[in-house]
Amino acid sequence: MEQVGLAATADVSLWSLFMQAGFVVKLVMIGLIAASIWTWAIVVDKTLAFGKARRQLDSFEQVFWSGQSLEELYRTLADRQTSGMSAMFVAAMREWKKSFERGARSPIGLQMRIDRAMDVTLARESEALEARLGSLATIGSAGPFIGLFGTVVGIMTSFQAIAGSKSTNLAVVAPGIAEALLATAIGLLAAIPAVIAYNKFTADAGKITARMEGFADEFSAILSRQIDEKLQPRQAAQ
């Protein structure tokens, strides 16, 4: 009965639960909170980054298809920090310029070089888009397990303590189990947003990459036509 009285007065608020927890459980909880912070940091970062990328794609496409001269567009963009489609455009134009300055002979070789340049840029851009999404996936899948580990350790220690106190009263058992379950709760709290965010951002990155691939193909077609137009008069003149 004495133990019941003690247990009844025990503080079961979140903070006291955390402070009562053992070393391992505390470590797990802190780690999970850090993971949660990291997850949300990525979420905020990616939301902003993807929004920005989309806006840039929209504005670039608008400018590109506005009928403006590609030379002019290249000149305005060449000195700027570019990303996404504009980066691909600049890379392709740079390759084009370099080839013509040196007097390219083979139209096929020029075409291939331009495509390569755009592919490399596309890969770099999509890598930047998908950066840190891996850690979201890791947190999403491992978070519950880490929390469960904390719970198991916590319950283990609390059962050991119960064995020591030789009382199976629920009031004696409850605080230890509640404290242990807190670890799982935090694990789930970190993992659920991570999984959702991971799925959403992977899909978004896929969409943006597809859009850029489409642009690369179109631009490649335009350049190919240009190459033919520019090289044929020269060959005819010879």
Binding site: L14, W15, S36, I37, W38, W40, A41, I42, V44, D45
Partner: peptide, 21 residues
């Protein structure tokens, strides 16, 4: 964004500690 996330977590944790109790 890391700072934002940390700040958000701090806010939520304090709110939880105060209200859930």
């Amino acid at each position: 964004s890391l700072a934002t996330s940390a700040a958000l977590h701090a806010l939520v944790l304090t709110w939880a500690l105060v209200t859930i109790g």
